[in-house]
């Protein structure tokens, strides 16, 4: 099977899989599925700068929070539909990514990760201290209108499920197209060897900036979705360092820099986390321990992630081996 045909087969299987959860009678189960897909969407957004571009951001909660707060504030203060607020949040997050990225891109490896982590922490503390406008540590509630799809809310969970499937499809398409574009080739080259990329005429800062802004904008749209889905946001939910780490780990475990890896990571880790939470009950930080453990296991076995492990299995059992790494 050619890589394209195989991609098509995987895509078709995914679409089929997406119809199945609608048959579930339990709103709770559908909520879990919706959240899982939201994380898949976030991991795919992170993948653009963290996976394809290889710049380990540990501050993506900042963009998620910016998206949630921007649309919610515009909605409760000025009555702007969160559908529009989503774009405002995305633009704001892209701007923030440029402001954080520009001075930090010269930093390599762990220093870049630490700088993004610090930037997100500063934002969290600032929001926690802005009692008037942003509600401080208690957060903001989205005004309840019940069934108002034009205001991005509905009492039926199927509404959110449909929206997240569309968002996920968009994120998958963007990653797919990016990997085949000039910017995508530049990013992968930068991830491999910055000096060699420079020698081939690549403007490193501009490429990283473009990737970081796109990644942040998509992440922010996820933040708006989350605010509408839960109808409530607070700094500890949408701006926490844990969230930043979760997103990055999902992408890395699944397979950074690939199209389906980040989604795969979310499909594996979120249900695992949910099961662990039930089994272990009240142990604080059990979810983070699980993330650390799974990260260690997968990275020891195959640094390119679970998608690579599955792919090797597929190649061994089925179709003639393809050496194309695309």
């Amino acid at each position: 099977m050619t890589p394209l045909a195989r991609g098509g087969a995987v895509g078709a299987a995914l679409v089929a899989a997406m119809v199945v959860p609608l048959a579930t009678p339990s709103p709770y189960a559908l909520s879990i599925v919706t959240l899982t897909l939201l994380y898949g969407y976030l991991a795919l957004s992170w993948n653009i700068i963290g996976g394809i571009g290889g710049q380990l951001s540990l501050g993506h909660a900042a963009y998620f929070g910016i998206g949630g707060y921007a649309s919610t504030l515009l909605f409760v203060q000025f009555g702007v539909s969160p559908w529009f607020g989503m774009f405002a949040g995305a633009a704001l997050a892209a701007l923030a990514a440029a402001l954080i990225g520009y001075p930090c891109f010269r930093l390599r490896g762990a220093y870049f990760a630490l700088a993004t982590l610090a930037a997100a922490m500063i934002l969290k503390i600032a929001v926690e201290n802005s009692h008037g406008l942003l509600g401080g540590p208690r957060g903001l509630e989205v005004t309840l209108l019940r069934d108002a799809p034009l205001q991005f809310q509905h009492t039926r969970k199927e509404f959110y499920y449909a929206v997240v499937v569309v968002m996920l499809t968009i994120a998958l398409s963007i990653n797919y197209l990016l990997l085949r574009s000039r910017l995508g080739f530049h990013l992968v080259a930068i991830r491999n060897d910055q000096d060699a990329a420079l020698a081939l005429g690549i403007d490193i800062t501009r490429s990283k900036l473009a990737a970081a802004m796109l990644s942040a904008a998509l992440t922010a749209a996820g933040g708006t979705f989350y605010a509408q889905f839960v109808m409530f946001i607070s700094p500890d939910k949408v701006l926490s360092a844990n969230l930043s780490v979760q997103i990055a780990v999902m992408c890395i475990v699944g397979g950074r820099g690939t199209v389906f890896g980040p989604l795969l990571g979310a499909l594996l880790l979120l249900p695992a986390e949910e099961i662990a939470r039930r089994a272990l009950g009240g142990i604080v930080g059990a979810d983070m321990m699980l993330y650390g453990l799974l990260l260690m296991i997968v990275m020891r076995r195959e640094p390119r992630g679970v998608q690579r492990i599955l792919r090797d299995l597929w190649n061994r059992t089925g179709a003639p081996r393809s050496v194309n790494a695309g």
Partner: peptide
């Protein structure tokens, strides 16, 4: 480059 610098992950 005297010490070659391929993009190792790429084809």
């Amino acid at each position: 480059f005297q010490i070659v610098r391929p993009f190792g992950d790429m084809t």
